[in-house]
Each structure stands twice: as C-alpha cells, then as structure tokens.
C-alpha cells in the first residue's frame, strides 16, 4: 500500500478526530512530540526531535497515588491511572528501538511496571522511516535500519513523494483498514538513507568487560560537567526517583526522571555515596549503555539517535568513546 505524501496531512486530521495524536513539532522553540491540535504544526521532516518520545510512556513527572488520613485516623490510598489511548505518528526507527529497550526494562524478567504497561498497551506507534540523516545520526552502526522499525504497529517507509505503508501488528492492521480512502495500491522503493557518521561496535561489548579500571574513563570523565542533559534527552534512559508532596493530611506520591549524572543519585541514607566522583558516574552511564544492558537483555542501550552527541555542552561524544574503546588492546 502506498500513501502519497500530500495525503499525510488529511490522514493526520482524520486520525486526530477523537484521539490524542502526538507528532514531532517545534513548540515554543523546543522540538518534541506534541499533541496535535491548535498551534502545533507537525514537522515530519525533522530528523530527530530534541526531546525523545519516552515521556509518552514514562512522563518526566508521573503521579502514582494520592493518600490521606480520614477523620478516624486511618489511611486511605487512591491509585491513579492516567493512561489513555494515544497515537504517535512520525516516530523514527531509532526511537522505536528505544521503546524495545524500555519494554525490556519495564515489562520483562518478572517485573511489570503497571504505569508503563498501561500506557504502552494504549499506544499506537506509526513510525516514519528516514530518507535523510542528521550529522549526528549513527543508528545504522547500532544495528538499526533507518527505514525499518520492526516493533512499530505501522511502518511508513519514506519513498520520496510517497510512503510505503506496512502494517506490522494486529493493531496496525486495524488502523490501516481505516485509512483506506487515503491509500493507493502498489509498492514503492524506499529511499536509501545516507549516514555519514559511522562507528564500529565490533568487540566493544566484550572489550568493556575488562575495562572497568581502564584510564579511558578518567580522560573521558574529566571534561564532563555532570549535568543531566544527556540522560534527559536520551530516548532509552529510564531511571526514576520516587518522591512525595505532602499537605496537611494529604499527599501525593509521584515518580520523576532521575539522572545517574547527579551526585545525589546514588547518595544513601547515612551519607555514603558509592559513586562519589564524576569518574564513577560517567563510567556507569557508558558501561550501562554499551555493556551492562547488553549482558542483561542482549541488546545495546544506545540506539544511535545522536541526541546526546548534539546536546552535550562539552561535546563528550559517545561515538568517539566507542571508537576509542575499539582502538584499545584490552
């Protein structure tokens, strides 16, 4: 099936009828996935948004439950489920891959995060393949095809002036069936996406096993500012902290994004901090991305979206680190 590009706008219009559709857009100067509506101009030609789509499934601040004490002094707890039917249109294959990683973390190995699970179940992903790459894109090097997102419900491959429409799940097929009036029969040839940034992951995971005390971390971490930019713009970073806000006999418990770059992230009651310096924190972040996650879930936690490469205030570049690790004789 083919969707002509000029049909995308009317299709979006019809999808947004009665549903929350999130599209890449520049809102108030920030490129992010925004709910389609008034004042939100979809920007499907944006290669990558500044903010990743992870907050659709895992908001930066998420209310978990509300509690209070009644007149008899007993506690009451009110649970919240704010998940609702959502569609994301125009999510890139790298970001779709990041959802695979998040699914692993939040849904597998016997640990199911209800908040995530509910939101995930109600999310319909329509991925748009990339016909062009940004300077900082390196998803191919991380094993992703920029025109393929196997876990998307619907894949729209960019073929120049049309999209190849591929329904990949039952949910996707049901959705595509509703698109009929916008689609044409046929198949087009996806445009090849030319990525200039390439790194080699050959042997990196194994080499990292023996590199815990390697001087590379010292050299790398010294320039790090220890801000949380990389973790907050990363589509796969998923650490959170649980906290609460109290008012008299009421309170709300919520969780919010946390960053392993912050000194208080590992601070313990009693004052001990197992990762007291930049060195340990930077090492942990990159080991998690390139080694720990690979060992536990069999995939890299870096999807090559290039957001951290782009946004790091001191150009601490994960692609250079991968190159450097590749060049060591560990």
């Amino acid at each position: 099936m083919i969707l002509a590009k000029q049909n995308l706008a009317p299709l979006l219009e019809s999808m947004a009828n009665g549903r929350d559709v999130f599209v890449p857009a520049v809102v108030d100067g920030v490129a992010k996935f925004a709910r389609y509506g008034e004042g939100v101009e979809p920007a499907f030609d944006l290669v990558n948004t500044t903010m990743p789509p992870k907050d659709l499934l895992f908001p930066q601040t998420q209310k978990m439950y509300h509690y209070d004490v009644d007149a008899n002094g007993s506690y009451r707890i009110y649970e919240y489920d704010e998940s609702r039917e959502q569609v994301v249109l125009g999510i890139r294959p790298c970001d779709m891959r990041s959802i695979v990683c998040l699914d692993e973390v939040f849904l597998t190995k016997g640990f199911v995060d209800e908040f995530y699970a509910n939101a995930r179940e109600k999310l319909l992903c329509v991925s748009i393949g990339c016909a062009q790459a940004a300077e900082t894109c390196f998803c191919e090097s991380m094993g992703i095809d920029p025109q393929l997102a196997p876990n998307a419900d619907i894949m729209l491959q960019d073929c120049g002036d049309a999209f190849n429409v591929i329904a990949q799940t039952e949910k996707g097929e049901a959705e595509v069936a509703r698109w009929e009036s916008y689609l044409e029969q046929g198949e087009a040839q996806p445009v090849a996406c030319d990525q200039s940034l390439k790194v080699s992951m050959d042997g990196v995971v194994d080499k990292l096993e023996g590199m815990y005390d390697h001087p590379i971390w010292e050299n790398l971490s010294i320039k790090c500012l220890n801000c949380g930019t990389c973790t907050y713009v990363c589509p796969t970073c998923h650490c959170f902290d649980i906290s609460q806000e109290n008012r008299r006999k009421d309170g709300v418990r919520f969780r919010c994004w946390d960053s392993c770059m912050f000194s208080e992230y590992t601070a313990m009651a009693g004052g001990h901090n197992p990762r007291p310096e930049k060195l340990e924190r930077v090492r942990n972040r990159f080991m998690h991305k390139l080694n720990f996650f690979e060992r536990r879930y069999g995939m890299s936690l870096c999807v090559g979206c290039g957001r951290c490469v782009e946004k790091c205030p001191v150009a601490l570049d994960i692609t250079r680190l991968i190159d450097e690790i590749g060049a060591t004789n560990a």
Binding site: D28, N226, C227, G228, T229, Y232, P313
Partner: peptide
C-alpha cells in the same frame, strides 16, 4: 511561565 515550563532541570546551567 513558558520559559519555566520548558526547563527540564538538567542543571547544565549550574554545572557550567
């Protein structure tokens, strides 16, 4: 308010 609504509190401004 729109400025603060955008802030993600990465604290880069403080750290630099």
């Amino acid at each position: 308010e729109s400025v603060y609504a955008k802030c993600i509190r990465c604290y880069a401004c403080r750290d630099v």
